[in-house]
Design a protein around this nucleic acid. Structure first.
Lengths: 151, 151
DNA sequence: CGGTGATCGTTAGCATTGCTAACGATCTTG
DNA sequence: CAAGATCGTTAGCAATGCTAACGATCACCG
């Protein structure tokens, strides 16, 4: 059977939904929600950046990011800092506690996946890696089509 | 570079999150939310089934499914029907309108992906297909590990 | 130099999804 | 026939997403 686009789209959708539900459980278990962990990840690895940049990186509207950052700040994972040269901007930077929980979350998630990933042979991992690459490509292609439409 | 599990987990997480955000936009555009479309899909393709079965299929608690079904029913996509032999059960079945929007949603999603999927060469599609298979395997492996833990 | 418009982040308010706890109705079993 | 189990619902909480509207700050042009 040759894989047709329609079936691939359905399967991809289901697979992504199921995967995220599993990962979300792991994230909840360490005491942080998925969107927050995702935003925190950007802050930790992407250095300090403004709320607006963070919203764009997470593909979310500014009001939503305001609340996520507020939550992260209340938990002590990030801090807001007024920009020195532009009073409108707010720089978000990670605290040591934030870096710690990122590491914990990653470890937790990895351990959740590890049994399965490590059970994969070299061939399986290569397939996963190339599948991820394809998904990323589809992803950015769709995003581009979308932004072009809305422009 | 040989792909290591940690990096694969991170990339997979990001790829899945990004993909779902794109797909959700398509679903929202046709006037139905992601969880509802997902549940509707199970009802359409899985024949009539009880609310509890549907909740399990979607890996969601019964109260959540009650509300999703209520929403679908208000929009005329499904109907509740009392079970003939067991008064506690509620059978959920799809309406013609429900089947129609499923087809529309699928078409929409496929068209969103099609530009990218169809741009893939035979090799790309094969990579995507095998990647999906691997993700599904990881998925069910994690689910199993989880339920065993909680038992 | 001053004012007008753009940009940034926030607040307020709405809908949806997810959960747990508790309940009423129905079935099953002793 | 009574006691416990099962099913779906209701009520109430927290989190995420959106749009609309606002105050503060900046940039630009006359």
């Amino acid at each position: 059977m040759s894989p047709n686009p329609e079936a691939l789209a359905d399967q991809l959708h289901s697979a992504a939904i199921g995967l995220l539900r599993q990962l979300r459980r792991e994230d909840d278990a360490i005491g942080i929600t998925s969107p927050r962990l995702s935003a925190l990840s950007v802050v930790v690895f992407g250095g300090p950046l403004t709320l607006g940049q963070l919203a764009k990186a997470e593909q979310v509207k500014p009001p939503t990011m305001t609340r996520i950052v507020t939550g992260l700040e209340e938990d002590g994972f990030v801090k807001r800092r007024d920009d020195a040269t532009d009073g409108r901007l707010t720089q978000i930077h990670a605290t040591p506690k934030g870096r710690r929980i990122m590491a914990a979350g990653r470890a937790r998630r990895v351990s959740a996946l590890s049994a399965a990933v490590q059970a994969l042979d070299r061939q399986g991992r290569r397939e996963l890696a190339s599948g991820i690459r394809v998904i990323q490509a589809l992803n950015s292609a769709m995003r581009q089509a979308n932004t072009e439409t809305h422009r």
